[in-house]
Design a protein around this nucleic acid. Structure first.
Length: 592
RNA sequence: GCCCCCAUAGCUCAAUGGACAGAGCGCUGGUCUUCGGAACCAGUAAUGGCGGUUCGAAUCCGUCUGGGGGCACCA
């Protein structure tokens, strides 16, 4: 669509109007035209009414349009038999342009907005891009806790953003930052050391799930007797200084958690280039802070009440404790050393953090400290997303009221299997399971990604497991339907053909084509806003238009040229849907 | 106490300051001797209150009400 807008803008510029491609908007109804130019801006500039400006434009373009035969049908409309624009019409403060059908259809359908493939991703790189080197840190689960639907949102969002950045030209390094140390680990180990030092678990018990339970049990005990926190701090210190027994316990249980995370990432299709560990940054952070203090590098980092703090009040960013008065290192110290590492060791131009909205202030503090330490030239961005809550309130491992990823996934998977079996009683078990898994994942990911980053998602099992309406399976269904159409058409000796696209004369066909042309715009918006929800909405709208088209327009039984054009259009739809899903890290299906 | 976010149809969500505020679910009615009914069509119904800026406000500003979140030893 961008190319078309540019061409129209050029036409108007030749006629002497200062119009930019970005000035055009879509008319609310396809019958009004393909593109509209609001005349408010020009009206203000020339101190005329928008309608008068519209008249001027029609007068002006009469010349370039008039290369051959131009005729006017009334003062508010011009038509032209030659060239690109078929009709330009003033409606209120807008000038609506309708393009020559053949030209428009060929512009969009024959020059897809993306190159054929990009290695591995197969989405296609749409622009050359700035080749900016970006690190995207996302998914920061804590070991010794369960992976729940809150983590799921981060994992889905991060993966989608990475694909969107890559397809628009950025060089992305993906990073996971595992919380393998800290108070939560100490609490868990403290409990295990007292109650299950040999780490005996029942057969068949999911070990990561077991750790999650231990953790919330420990939290409960400590809430009853707050003085136990002294023991926890002791465990934490001993662990950092390398107590053998604790270290052994820690390593083994950490492995349990990591095995589980890796299993889940594999199911979700998340791949990370770098793995960072809090336990490593703990040491680095302590060292770094020691240096900063010793050299008096920045005045904001100083001792206070026995702790080491960053006093950022003069920037309106409060105070952040970096090292506790009991000597244990906090998150901020670790993130500071990791933040520096990203710029120094990995040489990135931009550092993106996909982190929960509740850490907005915290990340501002980290970014400010990085600025003060000499990294003010480097770009730092916090992609904040709101969290997933339960109807009765926030989800927290501490409270033990989390909806685990497994619970949700298994529920959706069972449903997908049932649905698939009822439709395909003849399918072998293996095929059913494979397709059902893809359907289930599409449902879960799409359910999460269709919400804007800043909207709270209230977990509702019916919505998360829905397959009707605006869901992932709806998009998959549309693709499967197109595939089926191709099979049946091929049997009827019909093939996609682009030579007579002008036969696509129905309004719904034109609407569908224009929507295909908007794919790039949807991707660009997702990139600018670092929010993929608009892309989800776009894919749903495209799917809806296709299904509408499919209902109204036949392929088999029509004359081969029309059928060919419709198949060509359908193929474009399938291409965009598949690539769009790919960007969202969602796999498609051949059939379902 | 200070700061941030949110409030749109019965429910869940959309809408670069611009044309009659759009979807999905629900409900009512319809399509189909199914190129795949996980579908399509029609109907139903909404900008929390009060001011202001603007040619024009769901959107920007102020204020009130009602939710959520953050603010020194959690991450």
């Amino acid at each position: 669509m961008q190319k078309i807008k540019e061409q129209l803008a050029k036409l108007l510029q030749q006629a002497g109007f200062e119009v930019d491609a970005s000035d055009f908007v879509l008319p609310p109804d396809i019958k009004m035209g393909d593109l509209a130019l609001p005349c408010f801006g020009l009206a203000k500039k020339f101190k005329k009414s928008p309608a008068e400006i519209g008249m001027d434009i029609l007068q002006g373009i009469s010349h370039p349009l008039a290369s051959l035969t131009l005729w006017r049908s009334g003062p508010r409309q011009v038509r032209n038999d030659n060239g690109v624009v078929d009709r330009a019409e003033i409606v209120g403060p807008y000038v609506n342009f309708t393009f020559k059908r053949k030209w428009l259809l060929e512009q969009i359908l024959c020059s897809p907005p993306f190159a054929p493939s990009l290695a591995g991703l197969r989405v296609g790189k749409m622009v050359q891009g700035d080749q900016q080197k970006v690190m995207v840190e996302y998914s920061q689960p804590n070991t010794h806790k369960e992976f729940h639907v809150g983590h799921l949102r981060n994992a889905c969002l991060g993966a989608a953003l990475v694909n969107i950045l890559r397809t628009t030209g950025s060089k992305v390094i993906t990073a996971n930052y595992i919380g393998d140390t800290g108070v939560h680990v100490a609490k868990c180990l403290w409990y295990l050391e007292r109650n299950n030092p040999e780490l005996v678990v029942e057969k068949g018990q999911n070990k990561a799930e077991y750790l999650g339970k231990i953790y919330s049990e420990a939290v409960r005990l400590i809430a009853e007797k707050p003085e136990l926190m002294v023991e926890i701090a002791d465990v934490q210190s001993k662990l950092e200084s390398g107590d053998r027994k604790l270290l052994k316990l820690w390593k083994k249980t950490k492995k349990w958690s990591m095995n589980d995370f890796e299993r889940i990432y594999k199911v979700l299709g998340n791949k990370f280039d770098k793995w960072f560990w809090e336990s490593e940054e703990e040491k680095n952070g302590r060292k770094l802070l020691g240096q900063i203090i010793k050299e008096g590098k920045i005045k904001e980092i100083k001792k206070s009440e026995g702790a080491l703090i960053a006093d950022l009040q003069e920037y309106g960013l409060d105070v952040l404790v970096l090292i506790k008065s009991d000597g244990n290192v906090l998150y901020g110290a670790k993130d500071l050393s990791l933040g520096i590492k990203k710029f120094e060791k990995y040489k990135v131009d931009k550092s993106i953090y996909v982190v929960d909205v509740r850490q907005t202030l915290y990340l501002k503090q980290i970014f400010k400290m990085l600025d003060l330490l000499g990294y003010s030239e480097k770009e730092k961005a916090h992609v904040s997303y709101d969290f997933v809550t339960l109807p009765e309130g926030a989800m927290a491992s501490r409270k033990g009221n989390v909806v685990s990823f497994d619970k949700l996934f298994n529920e959706v998977l069972d449903k997908a299997k049932d649905e698939t079996k009822t439709r395909h009683a003849d399918w072998p078990q293996k095929l059913v399971e494979q397709i059902a898994q893809t359907i289930a994942l599409s449902a879960i990911k799409f359910w999460i990604l269709k919400y804007e980053n800043n909207s709270v998602i209230v977990f509702d099992v019916n919505k998360a497991t829905a397959f009707d309406g605006d869901t992932g399976p709806y998009v998959l269904y549309t693709i499967a339907r197109i595939n089926s159409l191709f099979e049946k058409s091929a049997a009827a000796k019909l093939k996609p053909k682009s030579c007579k696209l002008e036969l696509l004369a129905e309004n719904i066909e034109r609407e569908l084509v224009l929507k295909i042309g908007m794919f790039n715009d949807a991707i660009k918006k997702a990139k600018t806003e670092l929010d993929p929800s608009g892309l989800c909405k776009y894919l749903l709208e495209l799917g809806q238009l296709f299904n509408n088209f499919y209902q109204k327009c036949r392929v088999i039984g029509e004359n081969p040229e029309l059928a060919g054009a419709r198949l060509f259009l359908s193929n474009n739809v399938k291409d965009v849907l598949t690539k769009g899903l790919r960007l969202l890290n969602i796999k498609d299906v051949q059939m379902m």
